[in-house]
């Protein structure tokens, strides 16, 4: 009886995993398919789409923009989010509740609302849309995540370590640099990587804030209407997917170790 239930549960798990991986597997399969059309039936194995990547100049420019944007916006988000987490976890002050509520708000606001609100703001103040404005959007999105990840780590170790350092004559900022930050480092790195992958994949907000320099998701979206460009787009995406999964597995292992 128990044995049968056990295998039914396994069957359910395996079916769900197939359901989850099938669409992604399909894209990877098509990246090796020897046909300019992304339709069934498959036409045979080729590596030519991988070769064609080197010529896809616009796409590589978009990839470069996304990498720069991801690195810069997550660096700022991680820096500011860590400061906010330190303030929220280690201090009691009037308005702390309001501060925490406002900084968590971007988590519960639909992206379309955030994108539209920032678009109107930039237009009101005549700020030209560019990678910079997209970056602002990504920083606002990522600060709450950084606060959650780093904050959880700060709650997890007692402030007595910091007090001990200061009793022994270290200044507050010295303690921060040599005790607090090193202890929180796994969480800070995990927060950075999470922000980076979020920024790298973000589309719904970026769409409203982008200027002439497009990010990779925006480029991909613009290409979806041209079936002939799809194979190369899919091929790059297969590579990017593999890379981002590896990065997040690494971030996850850091977070769990922490």
């Amino acid at each position: 009886m128990r044995r049968r239930f056990f295998s039914a549960a396994w069957a359910y798990y395996i079916l769900l995993v197939i359901f989850l991986y099938l669409p992604i597997g399909l894209l990877i399969v098509f990246s090796f398919n020897d046909s300019p059309m992304v339709v069934f039936p498959l036409k045979g194995f080729t590596l030519k789409w991988y070769g064609a990547l080197a010529q896809a100049r616009e796409m590589l420019a978009a990839l470069r923009n996304s990498l720069i944007l991801g690195l810069a916006s997550s660096a700022v988000a991680t820096f500011l989010g860590t400061m906010a987490a330190l303030a929220a976890v280690r201090y009691r002050f009037p308005g702390r509740g309001v501060f925490m509520a406002v900084s968590a708000m971007p988590l519960v606001i639909p992206y379309v609302v955030l994108g539209v609100a920032l678009l109107i703001l930039f237009s009101t103040f005549n700020i030209e849309r560019s990678l910079f404005t997209v970056g602002i959007g990504h920083i606002v999105i990522n600060i709450p995540y950084v606060m959650l990840i780093v904050g959880a780590r700060l709650v997890g170790f007692p402030s007595s370590l910091e007090e001990a350092a200061m009793d022994l004559g270290a200044t507050y900022w010295g303690t921060l640099r040599r005790v607090t930050i090193p202890i929180a480092m796994p969480a800070i790195v995990a927060a950075f990587l999470t922000s980076f992958t979020t920024s790298f994949d973000e589309f719904a907000v970026s769409f409203f804030l982008t200027g002439t320099e497009v990010t990779l998701p925006i480029y991909v979206y613009s290409q979806l209407r041209f079936p002939s460009r799809l194979p190369v787009v899919i091929t790059l995406s297969a590579i990017v997917m593999t890379g981002s999964v590896a990065l997040l597995l690494f971030a996850e292992s850091l977070r769990r170790k922490g």
Partner: peptide, 30 residues
């Protein structure tokens, strides 16, 4: 973790994949 990994891949591309599954020359139709 095995279940979570697909959620970390490109959002747009996953929707595109569904388009490939559901379209007239797609997997389901076939």
């Amino acid at each position: 973790t095995l279940v979570l990994v697909p959620a970390w891949t490109s959002f747009l591309l996953r929707i595109l994949a569904w388009k490939l599954i559901l379209s007239s020359e797609g997997l389901l139709s076939g």
